[in-house]
Computed example of a mutant assay.
Amino acid sequence: MLVRHRGSEPRISPEATVAPGAVISGDVRVEAGARILHGAVLTAEDGEVRVGTNSVILEHALVRGRAGHPALIGDGVMIGPHAHVNGAKIGDGAFVATGASVFPGAVVGEGAEVRINAVVQVNTTLEPGTVVPIGWIAVGTPAQLFSPDRHDEIWAVQQALDFPGTVYGVDRSTGMAEIMQRQSAFYAAHDADEILD
C-alpha cells in the first residue's frame, strides 16, 4: 500500500518490487532492484527513507525516517524479518538480521553485520566490516560491543548518548506521560493520510 503522508508521496522505481501487504508511507524512495516484502513498513515520519539498489527489506521489518535522522539504506543491503531500523544510516552491503534493532543517529558501516536480535544504540557508529554478535549491543562511537549481561558497562557508555533527547526531543527527567502526550500528538498526522494504491 502506498500512502501520501505529510504531503509527500512514495517514489518507487518501476524496477523495484513492493509486495502486497507492505506499507510505504510518505517521503520514501525505493531504487531499482530493491525488494520490499510482505508486511514490511517503510514510513517517513518527518524524515526521509531511502532504499538503495538491490537492497531487500524482508517480512515485517520496520524502516522509519524521523526529523533530523533519515533512514538511509545503502545498495545491496539485507534488512531481515522483524528488524527495526529507525532514523539510521546503513552502509552498502551491510546485513541487519532478523529481529535486530538500529536506533536513531546510528551509522552501520559498509559490509557490517548486525546479527539476530542484536542492537545498535542511538548515536553509535559501527566501522565498516564490524560484526555485532547474536543478541549483543553496540554502543558509542566508535562502537564498543557488549554481551547483554553487561548492563552496567553498557549504561556507562549509553547514558552519554542521550536516548531521550535523540528519540523524543526531551531531557532524561521527562516523564512517560508527557512523552506519550507528545508522541500521540505527533502521530495524529496520520489522520490526514491518503491511500494512493
Rank of each mutant, 00 (worst) to 15 (best):
G68C: 02
Q159C: 09
Q183T: 13
A106H: 04
G39E: 07
A44K: 10
R11G: 05
N54W: 04
L72R: 15
G68N: 07
V122S: 12
P128Q: 09
T174V: 15
V56R: 11
V119W: 06
L196P: 01
W136Y: 15
V41L: 14
Q181F: 02
N123I: 01
D75G: 02
I116D: 11
G68L: 08
F186C: 04
R11C: 09
V132D: 08
W155I: 12
A100M: 10
Q183G: 08
G68F: 00
S13H: 08
V132G: 12
A34E: 02
A71Y: 02
H84P: 00
H84M: 13
Q144L: 13
I12L: 14
A189Y: 14
D46S: 14
E113S: 11
P81Y: 05
I90Q: 10
G21Y: 09
G33A: 10
P14D: 14
F146H: 13
M1C: 06
A156H: 07
V96H: 08
E45P: 00
G140L: 01
I195L: 13
M1G: 10
A19Q: 07
E178I: 03
F146K: 12
E31S: 14
H190L: 06
A61L: 00
L42T: 13
G21F: 11
I179D: 01
I79H: 12
G129I: 04
Y187A: 14
G111S: 08
V139F: 06
E153I: 01
S8W: 12
Q158D: 12
R64W: 10
P128C: 07
S173Q: 11
I179N: 11
G99E: 10
I134P: 00
E15T: 02
G7V: 09
A88T: 02
G91D: 01
R50W: 07
I79Q: 05
E127A: 15
E31T: 00
L72A: 07
A97F: 00
G68I: 01
P10E: 11
M180G: 01
R66C: 14
V139K: 03
P133N: 06
L42K: 08
A88M: 03
G93A: 07
G105H: 07
R35Q: 13
R6F: 08
G39N: 11
V139E: 05
P148D: 09
I36V: 14
E59S: 13
D46N: 15
L2I: 08
G33D: 04
S8L: 12
S25V: 02
M78E: 02
T124I: 10
Q183W: 10
I36F: 09
G140E: 03
R182T: 07
E110T: 13
F186N: 06
G74W: 06
P133V: 06
L2A: 09
H38D: 03
A94Y: 06
A44P: 01
D152C: 01
W155V: 12
